[in-house]
Simulated assay, not measured.
Amino acid sequence: MKLIDTLHRWTGGLIGLLLALLGLTGALLVHKNAWTLAPHAGDPRVEDVRQLAQVTQRIMADPTARPLSISYASDDFGLLKLLFEGGGGAYADQRGAVVTRWGSQWERPELWLFDFHHHLFSGEAGDWAIGIAGLCGLFFVVTGLILWWRTRRTFEWRLWPARMSRPAIVRHHRDLGVIVAPLLLLSLVTGAVQVFRPMAALLFGPGAPAQIEKALAPPPPPRDAKLAAQLDWAGMVMAAKARFPDAELRSLTLPRKNSGLITIRMRRPQEWLPNGRTTLWFAADSGALVAARDAAALPMAVQGYNLLYPLHTAKVGGLAFKLVMTLSGLAMTLLGTLTVWTFWFRRSAMAVRKPPVRPAMT
């Protein structure tokens, strides 16, 4: 038990601040669409596919000003998001008129907060660091429950320590950790499995990682096709809607890594994932439909994996679940911050405190 306590304290002291920051940014990002400020952000989503096709054609027509991707408006955010080479981007209304532009993500708090929470501003290396932090968080929850069991008779329901002394903070830390343990497990498991996909085997069975890898990959082989200067972008949108009439148009992306394929993602009614996994691929040189994948026909393990992101980001369950995941993030922030403070600073302050002077014996 002493070894578990030592590992719990030292790991928390070393990585608690990172978990606190991830919890805080996660809580903010749950409500991102509500606090992102831009004209027409509150417009209702346009469902007329002909209008969306015409807008797409206008945006993509000029090769010199063509974005790398378009993210279409959703039910809670009424703007198109355009991303360009070099990190720039723009928001446009659903008629295609640009309402605001940015030259880098640092000009938009919703963008750099997202980058920090998902990548630590470090791309793939940041993904690994966040995944490791998530695994450490799981270790904290499990070992914290073990350590709390010894002191369960002193449990008190407190949102804040009774005093800012180290014993009071440690007691509050253990009791609050027990209260929010289910929420922390949900946040940490759904986040860690998305980073370390092999962990999906723990949730969905031994063959799940291979199934997920195959299901989310573009159709083979890569096409030796360069993006044409002029394409029937509206025709692609109409073809996608004709193939999946009940699906909502979510994004259009230019070819990546010389795949030679333009990607359109759609969201069918039964999908929880905000951008859906119903996907169509079009040839970059001709605009012809190459392949289509229906999310409803994916293996059950893959469909289960696709539920992790909407659960992690509270994209399902309405305001009630948003508040639940907000509480999870804020609790992680409080637990991580107080852990670091008591481990590195409060302990030091107590160590240097001089002992009281006793009167001399006569």
Rank of each mutant, 00 (worst) to 15 (best):
V180C: 12
A201T: 08
V180L: 09
I15G: 01
A97G: 02
E156V: 11
W102Q: 07
P359W: 00
A73L: 07
H118K: 14
R158Q: 14
Y305A: 05
R166E: 10
Y72L: 06
A27H: 05
A215V: 12
A225R: 08
L21M: 13
W149Y: 14
T333P: 05
W35I: 07
P221A: 13
P206Y: 01
P299N: 02
H172S: 10
A360C: 02
P255M: 08
F345Y: 10
T154G: 13
L52A: 06
R293W: 11
V302F: 03
Y309V: 03
M350T: 09
P356K: 10
L68F: 11
W344Q: 00
K241E: 08
C136T: 13
P63L: 03
M325C: 06
P198M: 07
S104I: 05
D62K: 03
A217M: 10
A34Q: 13
R223Q: 14
S348L: 14
H173A: 00
D232Q: 00
K354G: 04
I4D: 05
V324N: 03
R250M: 03
A38H: 03
W106R: 11
F196G: 10
P63W: 04
T154N: 11
K354S: 11
T151P: 08
K241G: 01
F114K: 14
Q303R: 15
H118W: 08
A292K: 01
M332R: 02
M164D: 03
E213H: 10
N275I: 07
A215C: 11
K354C: 00
A20E: 02
G144A: 09
A331C: 15
M266D: 00
L135H: 01
A201V: 06
L18P: 02
E85D: 15
D76T: 13
R50L: 12
R268T: 11
W272I: 00
A217K: 06
D285G: 08
I264K: 04
A301M: 10
S165P: 11
R293F: 11
M1H: 13
D76A: 08
I146Q: 05
D5T: 11
K226E: 15
Q94A: 02
L249I: 05
V237L: 09
L185S: 07
W10Y: 12
R243I: 00
F345P: 03
P299M: 02
L120M: 15
S251R: 06
W128A: 13
V340A: 09
A125E: 10
L319G: 00
A215D: 10
L311M: 14
R108K: 15
V302C: 05
